[in-house]
Design a protein around this nucleic acid. Structure first.
Lengths: 126, 126
DNA sequence: TATAATAACAGTAATTATTATTATATTATT
DNA sequence: AATAATATAATAATAATTACTGTTATTATA
């Protein structure tokens, strides 16, 4: 794909993701977009989500619950996953950015990045 | 399930996992065990793996490649995933254990644990 | 050590999450 | 406006995992 054309559907996916603090799954995006585009296809959602991930516009959050979540916020931050209700929350933690440097020191390959997931109970479930 | 009975198949799964430094997927376990038990079922492998995870005997490694890996080593350590060949390697890093404490300080829920995955190129692919 | 109770098994069907295909429609370029 | 490129909807295909069914193996107990 040499060039990317505009599409209302992709625009709408971006709009939805940029206006939620949740970390929706492909299916959540699909269910939501159907209210605006009743005959949008799940395939379109998946295709655009992975395209946006490749572009670096959004971030894929694979927190281990078997479903991929997506996050509009591409800035360096971490995620918390509630063991109780399964919600995914943002967690600001600048102080752990140094771990890559530490890790690289004790590793004979090349570490380019890292992802940390925190688990426990959210304020509601506590 | 009130009681857990012995089974050679589960024993064999443990034996295999405890003797490899790799982080096998369910299918890798299956393929390997078939050499000993030619008619072992993939269902049996999956059932026992999740049973062992629930028991805390092994650890599930969901590194985001779409397949779950399993690790006999339940001690606190981290994992590196090569973007090139997809291999999963152990990474000792005691120094990042404090991040839970840091995270808890800035979080209104309860953080019980965390998992960090490192990404990049392994020594072979570099 | 037989026998009964039950967990584990093999085999397979069903689900779930995701990716690929195809024919049609939309957008951009000449 | 005609043509080329890309996106779409619908759906088929695949991959990973879970659930079900009838049978076998293990354990407890008489």
């Amino acid at each position: 794909m040499t060039n990317t054309k505009y599409s209302r559907q992709r625009e709408s996916i971006c709009h939805y993701l940029s206006n939620t603090k949740e970390h929706p799954t492909a299916d959540m995006v699909y269910q939501n977009l159907r209210e605006v585009y009743p005959n949008i296809s799940l395939g379109t959602v998946y295709r655009n989500l992975s395209l946006l991930v490749d572009q670096g516009t959004i971030v894929k959050v694979s927190c281990g619950d078997g479903v991929d979540h997506f996050d509009w916020d591409t800035s360096s931050h971490n995620h918390f996953i509630c063991k109780e209700c399964g919600c995914v929350l943002d967690l600001e933690m600048d102080s752990i950015n140094h771990i890559n440097t530490i890790a690289n020191a004790a590793f004979d390959g090349q570490i380019e990045g890292s992802v940390t997931y925190f688990y426990g109970k959210c304020s509601k479930c506590k």
